[in-house]
């Protein structure tokens, strides 16, 4: 497992109803890296993550996670922590914060088995890592936006992942909350050595934390260190407008 890149894609192409969504995406992410996938709205960032996770099948190309195709990961799937975009969950559910976090551990390996004490214990320890243990009994719907994002991070950490995949974790957060969130993430990543892949449309915040940036807009435009990517003329080509890095958005 260790000899393979953690994530590798070869010539990923995806078409839907005759439209090209992604074209020739080649990525290699090594263990312990913190990689940001950036690009404008509708660039295919979330779709790429879903292809990596095996939730969407590419029209052409190959994906390997820990050296295996996503559909043949078996128990290794338990080593992937995933934080989907916020709109995916139903906010009216009467669940406590701990209930939501514990769901991160309900994988195929535990299918049909009752939730165990160690799983609850693991969920508590994840909540502690993100500083929310005191809110474990609080209804999830009553948490603030920033606290919900931290709880979702705890849910992704619940399986002791080797690979953490986060989709727009800073969406809906103000700048100080974003900084706190990414500092926490960086701290966790450095202490445990896990590989982190983050999709974000916010260049300013992500470039301060990621070791590598991958800029896509249907196809891959730039790939390198934040400094290389931010200084590349291809960045503006990807965003199809002038990019103001300080504010993290395009100025067209």
């Amino acid at each position: 497992m260790s000899s393979h890149p953690v994530v590798e894609t070869k010539d990923i192409n995806l078409s839907w109803n005759g439209h090209t969504i992604l074209e020739n995406i080649n990525i290699k992410i090594s263990a312990g890296e913190m990689v940001g996938i950036i690009g404008p709205n509708g660039a295919g960032k979330t779709t790429l993550l879903r292809i990596i996770l095996g939730l969407v099948k590419p029209t052409r190309g190959e994906v390997r996670i820990f050296g295996s195709p996503p559909e043949k990961l078996g128990k290794l799937r338990d080593k992937i922590g995933y934080m989907p975009q916020r709109p995916h969950f139903k906010s009216f559910f009467p669940l406590s914060t701990l209930d939501v976090v514990a769901m991160g551990g309900f994988t195929r390996s535990f299918l049909g088995k009752p939730a165990s004490r160690p799983q609850r214990k693991k969920a508590r320890s994840s909540l502690e890592k993100v500083g929310l243990l005191s809110l474990e009994s609080k209804p999830f719907a009553e948490l603030s936006g920033g606290q919900q994002q931290r709880a979702f991070l705890a849910r992704a950490l619940c399986k002791d992942p080797l690979l953490l995949i986060l989709d727009e974790p800073n969406a809906g957060l103000d700048l100080p909350s974003q900084q706190r969130f990414f500092s926490l993430l960086k701290e966790l990543q450095e202490s445990s050595g896990i590989t982190v892949v983050i999709v974000s449309h916010d260049l300013a915040v992500i470039s301060g934390f990621a070791s590598q940036l991958i800029c896509i807009n249907r196809t891959m435009h730039v790939h390198g260190s934040p400094l290389e990517v931010l200084n590349s003329p291809n960045l503006e080509e990807a965003y199809r407008c002038e990019v103001d890095v300080f504010y993290g958005r395009g100025r067209c």
Binding site: L53, L55, L73, R77, D78, I80, Y82, P84, H88, F89, K90, F93, L95, V100, M103, G104, F106, T107, R108, S109, F110, L111, G112, P114, A115, R155
Partner: peptide
């Protein structure tokens, strides 16, 4: 009884359930 936690997970956040390999 046997699939309660999985049904709850799928109901709350299907994207996560699928990523966790749940059918």
């Amino acid at each position: 009884f046997f699939f309660f936690k999985e049904l709850l997970t799928v109901s709350f956040d299907e994207e996560l359930a699928r990523a966790n390999g749940l059918p």
